[in-house]
Design a protein around this nucleic acid. Structure first.
Lengths: 156, 156
DNA sequence: CTAAATGCAAATGTTTTGCACCTGG
DNA sequence: CCAGGTGCAAAACATTTGCATTTAG
């Protein structure tokens, strides 16, 4: 399963049909942009990216579609980073969390398998069923210019 | 050390003097409100609370002071929950994280000592120094009306 | 006195909404 | 066709900023 865009498109069509929603060009284009070129992005970045690709898609539709994609599990939404929502595609990516450099804002990703146990235990403690979690570690680079040379962990 | 408001006031005076900043009534009143009555709150809630108490303090000053309190460690700021910042007092509270009910939005708190080890390990992985972290678990109550009867963990 | 804070209102930036028009099924 | 979607612009929010006025030291 290397072509996650294709898989995402397939699932989108499925979901839309299932729900009696429409399979529009806009939704296809937006999903394509997300799965082809964007890693972490906010709505505005996605909007401008689409404009640059020549698609005439409105901000309203971008927001709309993001909500839809989150609803059907094709995109994940995070609320860190100064009051604006960040999104990322979810297919083909294993569960991970984020480390943000307080100096430059760069976002790194990491996996920690032990977190599953933590959320389970906490859920039991409150008799609730954990749905998802968000762990953000804010950190400072030791080096003066914070180059963030050590890039993302090799995640699929 | 039971009177955390007094301690907070003391530290504020100290900090302001140290930094050559002014010890204003507004800052005192705001800090008092936070330490006396507010658990988790956003800026607007704090603002209205102050109005109700009869203080004529502007929103600008509220935001200003919150930033100051965060800077000097008297208040913690979180960015979860739909794009608005949440604050809580930090003195007299041990490190904890949050569980949010997706149905009713109620916030629970919990301690997990193992998280320290996680942030340490991740910091080492990226050669960065972890400054703080935010773990939010989103969960659903099993019971239909999600009463959230089991309140906050007995934290100091 | 005077630099720092405050209050107010205007600006900013992000997300949502209302409504006329368009389009997939 | 026609309900669901889209585009546009206005509205809604939370937060920040500019500037005249007040005040702590």
């Amino acid at each position: 399963m290397a072509d996650w865009l294709a898989e995402a498109q397939k699932r989108l069509e499925q979901y839309l049909t299932q729900q009696g929603l429409r399979r529009t060009q806009e939704r296809r284009h937006i999903l394509e942009a997300i799965y082809q070129e964007l890693a972490h992005f906010d709505a505005e970045t996605l909007y401008r990216h689409l404009q640059e690709k020549g698609y005439k898609i409105s901000r309203a539709t971008v927001y709309n579609s993001l909500e839809l994609f989150v609803a059907c599990g094709l995109v994940k939404r995070y609320s860190f980073a100064g009051g604006r929502m960040l999104y990322e595609r979810s297919l083909g990516r294993r569960q991970h969390d984020h480390l943000i450099c307080e100096e430059c804002g760069e976002i790194q990703e990491f996996c920690d398998p032990s977190l599953g146990a933590v959320t389970e235990a906490v859920g039991r403690l409150f008799s609730m069923e954990p749905v998802r979690h968000e762990l953000v570690i804010y950190a400072r680079c030791a080096r003066p210019d914070c180059p963030n040379k050590n890039k993302l962990l090799p995640l699929p």
